[in-house]
Simulated scan of single mutants.
Amino acid sequence: MAKLSLIIHYGPDDVSIKVLDVVDLGVRVSLSCSANSEPSASFSWKFNGADTDVTTDTFTIDQTDFTHSGDYECTAWNSVTKRSVSQKHALIVKVGGGDGGGRYCIPENK
């Protein structure tokens, strides 16, 4: 008997960025982008609307300073479906304020 396998290509869907809204000055911060996608999505990042060289699912800041406050945008791209979806997150860097209320950026319902 012949064995068949079926691969369904989809996405990216449910793109989200996981990071606190407010972080302390001088700490290491990683913004993590995820998406539901088959095949796995490719990623790119913008900061305040400008392209960055980051093409992985994680955007890392080794030591935060005030210039790192702003809007981060992750774009997930599926090379098979030719679809891309972006998600933005506003990050604030401040002295001693890293609790951020524990809130994370979640995708908007469409």
Rank of each mutant, 00 (worst) to 15 (best):
V29R: 00
Y10C: 01
C105F: 03
L31D: 14
C74G: 03
D53N: 07
W77G: 01
E38I: 10
T55H: 14
C105M: 07
A2M: 09
R83M: 07
S30I: 08
G96P: 00
E108G: 11
G100K: 01
Y72L: 07
A76G: 02
V22H: 04
D13E: 13
N36H: 13
L20K: 04
A90K: 11
G97L: 03
Q63A: 15
L20D: 11
T67P: 01
M1L: 04
D14W: 10
P107K: 01
P107F: 01
Y10G: 02
K3A: 11
V23F: 10
I92T: 10
G70F: 12
R28H: 05
A41M: 06
K18I: 12
P39V: 02
I7R: 14
W45G: 02
N48Y: 04
N109C: 03
R28D: 03
A50V: 10
G26H: 00
V80W: 06
G97I: 02
V15S: 08
D51Y: 03
S86G: 07
D24I: 02
D14A: 11
G97T: 11
R83T: 11
G102Y: 07
L20G: 05
E73S: 07
D62G: 13
D13H: 12
V95G: 06
V80A: 04
F47P: 13
C74W: 00
L25T: 05
R28W: 00
Y104R: 05
L4A: 08
D53E: 05
A50Y: 03
G102N: 09
L4G: 13
H68C: 15
Q63P: 00
N36S: 15
K110G: 14
S69R: 02
V29G: 02
D99A: 11
K110L: 13
A76D: 04
F66Q: 04
G101Y: 08
H9T: 11
R83E: 07
L91T: 04
Y10N: 10
V23T: 15
D62T: 10
R103N: 06
W77M: 04
H9L: 12
H9S: 13
G101E: 06
G100M: 03
L20A: 06
Y104V: 10
V95S: 15
A35G: 05
G96K: 10
G98C: 00
K3T: 12
T60W: 07
